[in-house]
């Protein structure tokens, strides 16, 4: 019996179709199915030690002419601000990012709340526009648009995996 792909698989497939060549991530349960699908389809999944390192790695990969994606939990954005603010943005190294939102609707861990609440405001303060994904049926469309923004408009393009996706 054929099963239709999950939204995570659709999202991964859309990244691949848009030309993404490598993924850098720090493991996360909600991102794992995306990473697994990318790896199954031949996109190397690089597990690094810290989210900031993922942004540094992706910046270098982009500067060398490639198209990476970073997969991270939104709390990892807090770990990455210096790499984004003094490398990715000033050097014009644009790529898509998939941020798994914690600290929002349905969260039960108090430690996740502050960075979840400030994710969009932090990106906004850096001049980075975020693209929320709430409806699983929008996954392919939003990935396509985010990669267009990264490649064409040459700015960092974070897709936020909102809590509604799972509710």
């Amino acid at each position: 019996m054929l099963t239709s792909p999950t939204w995570q698989q659709t999202l991964a497939d859309a990244l691949l179709e848009a030309g993404v060549e490598v993924a850098a991530w720090v493991p996360d349960k909600r991102l794992a199915p995306i990473g697994r699908r990318l790896a199954e389809r031949g996109v190397p999944l690089r597990t690094l030690t810290r989210e900031e390192e993922c942004f540094g790695y992706a910046a270098g990969y982009r500067a060398a002419g490639g198209l990476p994606v970073v997969l991270a939990q939104c709390s990892g954005l807090g770990n990455s601000l210096n790499a984004i603010g003094s490398l990715v943005i000033p050097y014009g190294l644009a790529f898509p990012v998939v941020l798994s939102m914690r600290g929002t609707l349905g969260e039960r861990n108090p430690a996740q709340m502050p960075l979840g609440r400030t994710t969009v405001a932090t990106l906004d303060a850096l001049g980075v526009q975020a693209f929320p994904l709430r409806d699983p049926d929008d996954a392919a469309r939003i990935v396509k648009g985010a990669v267009a923004v990264a490649e064409g408009a040459r700015v960092l393009a974070p897709i936020l995996l909102e809590a509604e996706l799972e509710l």
Partner: peptide, 22 residues
């Protein structure tokens, strides 16, 4: 060359990205 003007602590990570692309 890829000169870092800031982002202390990310130069080796960036070099890893360059090395894997090239």
């Amino acid at each position: 060359h890829l000169y870092m003007g800031g982002s202390m602590g990310t130069a080796l990570a960036a070099a890893l990205g360059v090395a894997e692309k090239r």
